[in-house]
């Protein structure tokens, strides 16, 4: 940072600097105030994770219990399974959503027909509109063991025996990954579309004149141009790698116990364990644990990125 040099300069240049930047800080003020109120002030609540909360005394005056609230996350025999599932699913999700998001974005931007373009753009956003509860119903419509479309129509047509989908864990990684991609790919895709739309068209014109093919244009112009967006989005996902979409892992497999070996993740484990107990300290502890791991990972990832190309690092 350049602060040291600044000190040497005269006060008038300080004034100058102030004059340059204060309108910008003023612009940021509403957002800053909001973030402080909505995000930072409630963060005091993190102490709950280390307390045995007694509302008679109030949250802050309750007794400290150290890391006792965290024990349940590690003591059970499920700890390994839920950690493994959470991590592996998230890694697959990040890779798949990034790859397909970019691919679809490029396709959509390159489609010449205006009508089809509109159709595709609407389509990728559609799944946003459906809540996971409803997605759960639709998956059930396909895989219900008794009346599902797959068991009742598709498998008999292929001359195959019906499958007990909700009793067999091995099918679920594929189903969950598909559902997640189906529902989530549009988010990144839309970001990439806007990034591609922001690329200076003259770059492509020049490449066209040079006789570069489509693939070459994508590799040499499109991908490098949207790389910062890809990095931002990926880093943001890495930060939440210990979190998972509760609805996806709870509503979609319909809480079927026999599927836990491939569907149980940290969020569902915490929910099931604490549903009946209402223990605010323990649920807070789970959140702190998930955040902390994500935080460490994202700092590492950001460090690596900044080593490779400093301007693309998140902070």
């Amino acid at each position: 940072m350049k602060e040291e040099k600044v000190v040497a300069k005269t006060t008038s240049s300080r004034m100058q600097k102030f004059k340059t930047w204060y309108p910008l800080f003023l612009m940021m003020l509403p957002g800053a105030v909001y973030i402080i109120i909505n995000n930072y002030l409630p963060m005091l609540g993190i102490v709950i994770a280390f307390k045995n909360v007694d509302f008679k005394k109030g949250i802050l005056a309750s007794d400290w219990v150290g890391f006792k609230n965290f024990e349940f996350l590690f003591s059970s025999s499920d700890a390994f399974v839920i950690t493994r599932n959470t991590l592996l699913y998230n890694i697959v999700f990040i890779i798949l959503n990034t790859f397909l998001g970019i691919l679809f974005a490029i396709f959509i931007c390159d489609v010449t027909s205006k009508h089809l373009k509109k159709l595709y753009q609407s389509a990728i956003l559609f799944p946003f509109l459906m809540s996971m509860v409803i997605v759960g119903y639709i998956v059930f419509a396909f895989f219900s063991m008794q009346s599902g479309i797959v068991n009742k129509t598709i498998l008999p047509a292929l001359g195959r025996e019906p499958i007990f989908w909700y009793n067999e864990p091995k099918y679920w990684p594929a189903i969950l990954i598909f559902v997640n991609t189906w529902k989530g790919v549009g988010y990144g895709c839309l970001i990439y579309i806007s990034a591609i739309n922001g690329i200076d068209p003259s770059l492509y014109e020049a490449a066209e004149l040079d006789g570069a093919g489509k693939l070459k244009q994508i590799l040499n112009i499109t991908l490098p141009s949207i790389l910062p967006n890809v990095i931002t989005l990926t880093l943001l996902s890495v930060g939440r790698i210990f979190y998972s979409d509760f609805g996806l892992f709870y509503q979609v497999p319909r809480n079927s116990g026999m599927l836990y070996s491939t569907t149980n993740v940290i969020d569902t484990y915490v929910y099931r364990g604490l549903m009946q107990q209402n223990n605010i300290g323990m649920s807070s502890a789970a959140g702190v644990y998930q955040s902390l791991v994500g935080f460490v990972l994202v700092l590492l990832a950001n460090l690596i990125v900044s080593k490779v190309s400093k301007e693309n690092a998140l902070f």
């Binding site: 109120i37 930072y40 994202v298």
Partner: peptide, 28 residues
Amino acid sequence: KLPARRVITFLVFFTMLFNGGLVPSYIL
């Protein structure tokens, strides 16, 4: 060139990771 740019970015990003949970924000 914005002064403290990295710090501010970090502070914004930080809120994506950590939150105080539902009860404190409800109370607020």
